Computed example of a mutant assay.
Amino acid sequence: MGVRDEQKQATRERVLEAARDLFNETGYEETTIRAIAERAGVSVGSVFTTFASKAEVLSHVMERRLGDLYAEFDRVLPFLRGSTADRLCSIFAIHYEFETKRVRLFLAHIAASYSPSNDPGVTPYGRNERLSDMLEQVLRDGVARGDVRGDLDLPLTVEVLKACYASNYRMAAARGADAAEMSTAMDRQVALIAAGWAPRS
């Protein structure tokens, strides 16, 4: 890697760290590219040389953050026990515990799912393939174990689970609910959904 490439990478790192902190401190909408550049100690032009938009900056911030989370999941998933519902509740509880450390940042990530932008550099919450694949695998394992019926529409069930998970962040946004409160709500929602996937007698 040449000197120019190293400088570009260093700028990228500073921009992502500054953006992560500002999105969480002041919110996504309120954070400007100029503010990110000032916090990072770089020019506005340098930000736009590296990223096409603020939405792309957010997407890369979350990609890095979620990469750390899913590295941890790779370690713990084989050790999850209990029914399919229990395993899903554990997955969501870990997510809530992780994301409530920077809840405004994750709220911005969810909000980006509703943006009309189709920028290929942007991956909002709704298009997180890693989460979808993880949830679908747990459901497939449940089918194999016999506690999930074989004709269940797995992709649709994953979308319903993800929608419930995201909607619980309204409690954090509206009244500062913590990870435990959101996990309790999610447990009830998973139990309701699980009643629908139980094998028919």
Score class of each variant (00 low, 15 high):
A10S: 09
A10I: 11
R12Y: 08
E13K: 15
E13N: 14
E13D: 11
E17D: 10
E17A: 15
A18H: 05
A19Y: 08
R20P: 03
G27R: 01
G27A: 10
T31A: 12
I33P: 04
R34N: 15
R34S: 13
A35E: 00
I36V: 11
A40E: 07
V42M: 03
S43W: 04
S43R: 06
G45K: 00
V47E: 03
F48P: 13
F51C: 06
A55C: 00
E56M: 10
V57M: 06
E63K: 09
R64D: 15
L66G: 02
L77T: 08
L77E: 04
L80N: 07
L80D: 14
G82C: 08
S83G: 10
S83E: 11
A85F: 04
A85P: 13
D86P: 03
R87W: 13
L88N: 02
S90A: 14
F92Y: 11
F92Q: 03
A93V: 07
Y96P: 03
E99P: 01
E99K: 00
T100P: 08
V103C: 01
R104H: 11
L105M: 01
L105E: 01
L105I: 01
F106Q: 00
F106E: 02
F106R: 14
F106W: 12
F106A: 08
F106K: 00
H109Q: 07
H109L: 05
A111F: 04
S113N: 12
S113H: 00
S113L: 09
S115R: 07
P116N: 01
P116L: 03
P116G: 09
S117V: 05
N118Y: 11
N118I: 10
D119F: 03
P120S: 09
P120R: 01
G121K: 15
T123E: 09
P124Q: 10
P124D: 04
Y125E: 08
G126D: 10
G126K: 13
G126C: 10
N128S: 13
L131M: 03
S132W: 01
Q137V: 02
